[in-house]
Design a binder for these strands. Structure first.
Length: 740
DNA sequence: AGCACGCCGACT
DNA sequence: GTCGGCGTGCTC
């Protein structure tokens, strides 16, 4: 009897065995999309293996209901990569596989016609009284109705994402007739219509040419090879990528270009489109489902052979992959840390290996992990030390805020004298400036001057942030938004005052002190709407704005020649985070922001304000001394047993009851200690740095080992042995990046 | 995930 | 007494 292993589209760690019915015997193979009977429903799944081993004892096998199409939706090398990922990142195989497919293929619904999304609309007679009546009996339904009443029509999926009980509650609400369902056909956005003129073909620098030729000869061998392209900012890495992609296409193969989400800007896309025209397909979170499906099909059919996208584009269904480029390799956004904690950069290497392809990791600031690999020979190092057209690296000036401010606590300078002077000069010369501050909002902290208590979120263990424009205090973790209280909630005192600064205040200060300047703010508050990022950036590029104030968003992916001054308003922020990578992040951030300056004809200048002017991250970034920084950091990691010297697994437990969360995490910790023995070291369990989010208490366990398998085996044993208490969420995070 | 079973409080 | 709420367990 012919049997099939199927990974079902659900968060279930097992795979299931089915009988391959004679109807689809001929073609069914690993990677095929199927519908299978599952309990009393029909579920979507992907075949991972065809075999004829005797069925597991005591189960009545069922037949596969149907095969969706004869061609596999994931080919052999991609399937191998996904199964590897499921095993390595300790996540259910179905979750991993379906992360690689358009969401449309996930549900076993009549697939005919256009994709539709369901919205809920409350009926008119619902008011707060009807909701209050439900509060005690059906809190879940009450929550749904409340959201619906405050924001009107809402997508069903929206509720299910945040509220586990929502699905059932919604069903009941529909049955009761309290809400109506509206279906909306999704409209597909036309593909990028305005193709820019092709770029002039630039002459390569000597270093660029050398890098290209090494990459090309590797690609000609049709075997796996990995490169780390370490090129200073402005050294023309993009051109090297484009030539490599061109080479892959010429050889009849495909290519994937991965970029961090926010640098997936129209600027980058137009460069890639200009070079490869209709061969390009784009995959990112901003696409509508229909658009994503279209792009996915174009790649699968081979109509497009260059996939450009964020993290998940590493799963692009290209045929005959020859090259994967990971731009800004060090960027933390390659690691997804919430749902499916995989690292796009690392999976890129795994996939390249299984496709006999070449992988290029490119960056101006290599991660300690990748540089270590390059030095040990696991990848080949290519270096670009010169900026294109002999432009110099910007000069970086570090300003000690302790000396600049008269009394830093009373009246901290947002923009100190040195930065102000530089800004004035820049504006006089009609040049542009970027001010970088890694914090949104107006004031980061609202304090009562009588009792000293800060105003904190009631659901999360964080301070509320003052947002000036909406006159509200907001929680950046759960979205709570409250009016600014006139009296202190803990002591009743009337002297409640905002302290600290965010981009909003910084913007205001620039406007106040430079009245003639045209100022614009760029952060996730100002670009929440689709397409705003594009329009704001092109405004800046067209020189309709003189000063751009923003968060991380201003540090990536744009090449604006008019910028001659970059100001880092407070470089210490990242150093305060309790994370072993804090120093590395800060070094990278300063180097990257600084790299935005002087990309045109005129030389760039960078002013970094900090209370820690002698911190190695800041000093070495100022002097552009990557190698020294790396050596230092590498030694620290080795001493303390952090990556890349050791592997890390983080296990996070969260529960609405603090004792339950702590108790269970301790139980798991003991078990880990017992089975891991001397192979592993445990840290914790300890409260997560942000110890409460959305009313759930969070504890985490950090486990180190020289050997990743010991960590994964341990985790699997724990899963087998314990059933977690009700309401407990457990997140396994292999190679964690974000440990807040 | 999503469905059935089964226990529980609160209404005709 | 039943009805509908929500915890528990299972799916080849």
């Amino acid at each position: 009897m012919k049997l099939a292993q199927v990974a079902v589209a659900a968060p279930i760690r097992n795979q299931f065995t089915y009988i391959v019915s004679t109807a689809c015997t001929n073609n069914l193979q690993a990677g095929c999309l199927v519908d299978v009977p599952f309990g009393r429903m029909i579920k979507r799944g992907v075949v991972t293996k065809i075999h004829d081993q005797p069925p597991p004892p005591g189960v009545a096998l069922k037949e596969i209901s149907r095969m969706l199409e004869p061609d596999p939706v994931v080919d052999r090398p991609l399937l191998d990569t996904l199964l590897w990922g499921s095993n390595y990142y300790l996540c259910p195989p179905g979750e991993m596989i379906f992360a690689a497919l358009p969401a449309t293929l996930r549900k076993s619904k009549p697939t005919s016609g256009q994709h539709r999304i369901q919205f809920l609309v409350p009926i008119d007679t619902i008011d707060s009284a009807t909701i209050a009546a439900l509060d005690s009996k059906a809190p879940c339904q009450a929550r749904v109705l409340r959201t619906l009443l405050s924001q009107g029509k809402t997508c069903v999926a929206e509720f299910c994402r945040t509220d586990p009980g929502a699905r059932q509650a919604i069903k009941t609400l529909i049955r009761k007739g309290l809400v109506l369902v509206e279906e909306q056909a999704q409209v597909r956005r036309p593909a990028m219509a305005d193709l820019p003129p092709p770029l002039e073909v630039k002459n390569l620098t000597q270093e660029q040419a050398a890098a290209c030729s090494k990459i090309q000869s590797s690609m000609d061998r049709n075997a796996y090879d990995a490169f780390l392209l370490h090129g200073v900012t402005g050294s023309g890495k993009t051109e090297v990528y484009l030539r490599a992609i061109g080479h892959a296409l010429q050889a009849g193969r495909s290519a994937i270009l991965l970029v961090p989400e926010i640098s997936l800007t129209p600027q980058l896309l137009s460069i890639v489109y200009a070079r490869f025209q209709t061969q390009v397909a784009v995959l990112h979170s901003g696409l509508l489902e229909g658009e994503r499906l279209d792009e996915w099909h174009r790649l699968r059919k081979g109509e497009a052979r260059v996939a450009v996208g964020a993290r998940s584009a590493v799963f692009a269904p290209v045929r005959n992959l020859g090259l994967v480029v990971v731009d800004e390799e060090h960027d933390p956004s390659y690691k997804q840390s919430d749902r499916l904690p995989y690292n796009g950069r690392d999976l890129a290497m795994v996939r390249a290996k299984s496709e006999n392809a070449v992988v290029i990791l490119g960056t101006a600031t290599p991660s300690v992990e990748s540089y270590t690999h390059a030095l040990s020979g696991r990848s080949k190092l290519l270096t670009l030390t010169q900026r294109v057209q002999q432009r110099g690296l910007p000069s970086v000036e570090v300003v000690d805020l302790k000396k600049e401010s008269v009394d830093p606590l009373e009246r901290p300078h947002t923009i100190g004298p040195a930065l102000a002077a530089a800004l004035a000069e820049t504006l006089d010369r009609k040049e542009q400036a970027i001010l970088f501050l890694n914090r949104r909002g107006y004031s980061s902290l609202v304090l009562c001057q009588d009792c000293g208590e800060g105003i904190r979120c009631k659901n999360c263990s964080v301070a509320l942030v003052h947002h000036l424009k909406e006159q509200m205090l907001r929680c950046h973790y759960c979205g709570l938004s409250i009016a600014i209280p006139s009296r202190c909630p803990s002591c009743g005192g009337g002297r409640v005052q905002p302290f600290g600064l965010g981009t909003e205040k910084c913007e205001e200060e620039v406007r106040r002190r430079f009245p003639g300047a045209r100022v614009m703010r760029l952060d996730s508050d100002s670009v929440s709407k689709r397409g705003t990022l594009h329009s704001l950036l092109s405004k800046f590029a067209r020189k309709e704005v003189d000063v751009l104030v923003g968060t991380q968003m201003v540090t990536k992916g744009h090449d604006i020649p008019g910028v001659t001054l970059v100001g880092v308003v407070l470089a210490d922020l990242g150093l305060q985070i309790p994370d072993f990578r804090a120093a590395e992040r800060t070094f990278q951030l300063i180097t990257q922001v600084a790299g935005r300056a002087g990309r045109g004809e005129k030389p760039g200048r960078v002013v970094v304000q900090t209370f820690l002017p002698f911190h190695p991250s800041i000093v070495l970034a100022r002097e552009h001394r990557f190698d020294d920084f790396f050596q230092r950091e590498r030694e620290k990691r080795t001493q303390l047993g952090y990556p890349p010297a050791k592997k890390l697994l983080m296990v996070r437990f969260s529960h609405t009851d603090e004792k339950t969360a702590l108790g269970f995490s301790q139980k798991v910790a003991r078990e880990f200690n017992q089975i891991g023995g001397r192979l592993i070291q445990l840290l914790g369990p300890a409260p997560s740095p942000i110890s409460k989010i959305r009313g759930r208490f969070r504890f985490q366990l950090l486990i180190k080992s020289g050997n990743a398998k010991a960590l994964q085996e341990g985790a699997r044993m724990v899963l087998k042995k314990f059933k977690p208490p009700t309401g407990m969420k457990i997140l396994f995070d292999m190679d964690p990046i974000d440990m807040l």
